[in-house]
Amino acid sequence: MTQASPSRRWSPPPLIRNPFQRWALILGAIVYLLLAISTLRIDVARIIQGLDRGSRMFAGFLQPDFVSRWTDIQAGILESLTMTVVATVIGVAISIPIGFGAARNVAPLPIYLFCRAWVALARTFQEVIIAILFVVMMGFGPLAGVLTLSFTTIGFLAKLLAEDIEEIDPSQVEAIRATGASWLQVMTYGVLPQVMPRLVGLTVYRFDINLRESAVVGLVGAGGIGSTLQTAFGRYEFDTAGAILLIIIGLVMVTEIASGVIRKQLQ
């Protein structure tokens, strides 16, 4: 091999070889961007107005008012906590059979495909979209929120549980099967103990996520502290809204720390 001359420095080969095509593409992208920005109708007056409103909002946040709407806030928190607990319990209870069904090493093919399809469906849409669907179906209130969180819990927990089951030590299972154990006995003695620590860890983690999401789905009318927050914004009561946000931050932090501690204990 010959040595490269020092004057010709190496540069990465361009993605598009033809220089004319390359520059045409770059110019086209710039023109498109300029046209796109012009359609947004960016109004300086509105931005200034918005900044003004924003500063009032922040002023409200700096003086959070826990007192005047305390009963509403309290009801909202309780509703959120209830939604979280109920949705996590329902979601986990449904996730376990689906998770086992979605693990290729323990489930027959038709059941595997059915459960995987469920998991894929539950994971397709973001919480808020599913919440909107359930609010339309069930009406405003915490029922829609519980259904949303249960549904999204399945997508999360069943998938991760299935992946964990697919990675278990097959020799432990083989020995249980060799005792003449039935399928369900093999699952309870050979498979479940191997994934149990992770199942508990995931449940705690999902509880933590569900609490956070319960505030979000509330914004589209699915009950809980999110609904209280939405009402406060609707009334331009930024001081109350600030108080609610602080409470949400506090709650999420407490559950996150707690779930972290619990999961660390399980390792």
Partner: peptide, 8 residues
């Protein structure tokens, strides 16, 4: 070896 369920 490795045929006991170690988590139990």
């Amino acid at each position: 070896q490795h045929h006991l369920v170690t988590n139990l």
